[in-house]
């Protein structure tokens, strides 16, 4: 039954990864402006080159 050990460890690691990812998204303010995020995707910027000045996502609380 050592296979169950592997399974447990793998599944828990994946789940812990998901938890960490959620915590990171929460910390970086991605849940602060749900309405804005829903609208922003509608407006693409033709000058959206990678070199564009970045507006930090955490700018508004």
């Amino acid at each position: 039954m050592t296979v169950i050990l592997f399974l447990l460890i793998i599944s828990l690691t994946i789940a812990a990864g998901g938890l960490w990812f959620f915590m990171w998204s929460l910390r970086s303010g991605q849940y602060d402006d749900m309405d804005g995020a829903a609208n922003r995707i509608l407006f693409d910027d033709p000058n959206d080159a990678p070199a564009r000045k970045k507006i930090p996502a955490r700018a508004v609380r």
Partner: peptide, 15 residues
């Protein structure tokens, strides 16, 4: 340096 509008709270943070 920073100008972002929060649509939920209707606030603008300006730097």
């Amino acid at each position: 340096t920073a100008g972002r509008v929060n649509m939920t709270t209707r606030r603008l943070r300006l730097g």
